[in-house]
Design a protein around this nucleic acid. Structure first.
Lengths: 123, 123, 123, 123
DNA sequence: GTGGTCTAGACCACC
DNA sequence: GTGGTCTAGACCACA
């Protein structure tokens, strides 16, 4: 369900974290649902279990997951709010990149062109 | 002349490099002009001279600077072309951020809203 | 009869084990008495039967239980001695916590205060 | 400056974290001071650098350290408050151990005896 | 030099 | 089976 871009400059564990928050935002994962096991997700994404474990640990620390004594990781009731708050991070990152572009001579048209292209690819 | 954002996730030396390329794109710096000395720029931006030195070193390696006159760093004749090519980096960074947003549940409207906001701020 | 604290950092099966030993120390359970069945205790404490089973298995291995009469778990004649020896575990755990506190800046007065408070609560 | 007990049941990275908070509580480390580098502390404690790195990462996430772009880890202005709050954890752990002891048949005298012994050792 | 990320693999505790 | 901890060592980014 989660997609990882090995060539992105964002760390893999961060991509996993935003991936889960995205699943909640898109209602593909709901409070009470169980996340896949660390080993299972690591195998599916062909990542090292430690990398997935770090993402899960931080999600648990934030209150996104609730894990009791080595049981499954359950999406918490607060996950929705946390996922929503995370949206701001995504937006801020876009804003930062756009701002940098505008400051350095890119035109609005350039940026609109990028948007169009990415949207097509994303389909 | 160059603006640095200490809180950006872009490395400082990269910001310096794109800063110079932006100055050339905006014709505020032209081939034959001398860049400020490493120490002067570091002092002005309150950065570690090593950081500025790294940017200058890479700009020289790329052929953007020539150090012919004494020890000064002179903007080369090829700088214009290099600056133009650099635009692709800026575009790629925007594209990556937008792609990440779309993959994780942001809508096109969200992204348009960001654009509008940033444009206003940039005025 | 046994109290479990789900939020304690002590493992559940350990709490069950010390619980039984405490019952013997307080003479609420005597050699020859039968312990509740695994299923019954698990249901009463709302724990996973596997967790209770592990506690019973270890108690049996230690010689605290004997399963002679049918399938029942009978408190053995040696249980009293084992219960007494277990006291050392409790003491060691307290000692470790206190030591950690003293090493990290807690004063004797702080610790006395905790003692007073806990004693009151325990009444 | 920090002492680690390899045989404690507390994880090493947690001991490092409480160690730093203890140093702040005891005024041996003050806001603005730099913590030793990850590699240096790891070498001194003969631990793996990753273990120390984890402690530092979490301290930074909590706002106890402030680290800028791969520079030194500086004790933040908020560190005092965080260290104080941590005291409650230490106290809670002691309280928990004492409570467990009382519930399972330890007498007040037993516990006082432990205190006396640990205090002597701690000198 | 610094910290950050990732992989690999071992071992433990818990359910 | 699950997650948690730790070690080892490589590589990168930054100042």
């Amino acid at each position: 369900m989660i997609k990882i871009d090995l060539h992105s400059q964002a760390p893999l564990y961060e991509q996993i974290k935003t991936g889960f928050k995205g699943l909640v935002r898109r209602k593909l994962l709901r409070p009470g649902d169980a996340a896949p096991s660390i080993r299972a997700l690591a195998a599916q994404l062909t990542l090292n279990p430690n990398t997935v474990a770090r993402a899960y640990r931080e999600l648990t620390a934030e209150g996104f997951f609730e894990s009791q004594r080595g049981e499954e990781n359950i999406v918490s009731a607060r996950a929705g709010a946390l996922a929503k708050a995370d949206t701001e991070n995504l937006k801020a990152r876009i804003a930062e990149a756009v701002k940098e572009g505008l400051l350095n001579g890119l035109s609005s048209a350039d940026i609109e062109a990028i948007l169009g292209r990415v949207k097509k690819e994303a389909i």
